[in-house]
Amino acid sequence: MTKRVLLLLADGFEPLEAAGFTDVLGWANIDGEEQIEVVSAGLRPVLKATFGFSVVPQAMLSDLDLTHFDALAVPGGFEGAGFYQDALSEQFIDAIATFEKLGKPVASVCVASLSLAAAGILRGRRATTYHQIGGKRKAQLETYGAIFIDRPVVIEDNLITSTGPGTAIEVAFALLRTLTSEANVQHIRTLMRMPEPSEAWRTQVQVVEAVT
């Protein structure tokens, strides 16, 4: 049976973060153990990506029946590109909350974890987000009751969060593992020539605070 993944795009999303999902799940759809359909959707008929070009999503979020999907994928974006206008809107976070209520996997990259947090699904749960010295995004995440973990990718129950565009591929593989199997993940890694990250990568902190 085909698995269906909703790729939820906010205006100002970062292309590399979306591409992690489209590439990994696209390869899995062609050469994996079962088919996976990715459907992109947003709140606008034309979306502006972080770096200026326009993208036409396959559907408007309001036109979709979310119960027909098996998982949700949410790329992050840049504040200066208007990302949070969509990403923290009621319609956007309601969609995220719906997937959680249905017990379905929700995967986010970078600051998209703030959308998950705003939807109320990270309260009391381990999660991460983009983090720099000063901790602005970390503090935002924690105001929603999330337990911040300084790791590249954090998996808690059916929720996947991460720290930046460089983690997008690994978030997508984590989602693929949840939807299919570890054997399928390893098969797609081999086909894509995508090596398994080292344990050092998986446990490294993002910011080493200066010692005074």
Rank of each mutant, 00 (worst) to 15 (best):
204 Q>M: 13
143 T>E: 08
168 A>H: 08
19 A>Q: 10
92 F>V: 14
143 T>H: 02
42 G>R: 03
126 R>C: 07
58 Q>L: 08
92 F>Q: 14
101 K>R: 14
188 I>G: 10
139 A>G: 04
83 F>T: 04
188 I>N: 06
46 V>M: 14
6 L>I: 11
86 D>M: 03
191 L>I: 14
29 N>L: 07
68 H>T: 15
12 G>S: 04
76 G>T: 02
131 H>N: 11
104 K>R: 15
155 I>K: 14
201 W>K: 03
26 G>A: 08
85 Q>D: 09
39 V>W: 13
150 D>Q: 13
72 L>A: 06
97 A>R: 15
99 F>L: 06
202 R>A: 10
160 I>D: 03
112 A>L: 13
26 G>D: 11
169 I>K: 10
37 E>A: 14
140 Q>C: 03
78 F>D: 13
18 A>S: 13
111 V>G: 01
153 V>R: 05
31 D>G: 09
126 R>T: 11
133 I>E: 11
135 G>A: 08
63 D>Q: 15
113 S>Y: 00
145 G>E: 00
4 R>L: 10
69 F>G: 07
152 P>G: 14
98 T>L: 01
150 D>R: 14
156 E>Y: 08
178 T>D: 04
76 G>N: 02
198 S>V: 07
207 V>C: 10
51 F>V: 04
160 I>W: 02
85 Q>V: 10
201 W>P: 02
65 D>I: 12
195 P>R: 05
93 I>A: 06
166 G>L: 07
153 V>N: 09
194 M>K: 07
126 R>H: 11
125 R>T: 00
74 V>N: 06
203 T>C: 01
65 D>P: 09
115 S>W: 02
89 S>H: 11
56 V>L: 14
110 C>T: 12
36 I>W: 00
121 I>M: 10
146 A>D: 00
47 L>I: 11
200 A>C: 05
206 Q>P: 02
135 G>T: 00
91 Q>E: 14
157 D>G: 13
128 T>L: 00
20 G>P: 03
44 R>A: 05
184 N>Q: 04
54 S>G: 06
76 G>S: 03
67 T>H: 12
130 Y>N: 01
89 S>V: 06
182 E>V: 12
32 G>I: 06
199 E>H: 10
164 G>Q: 10
55 V>N: 07
154 V>Y: 00
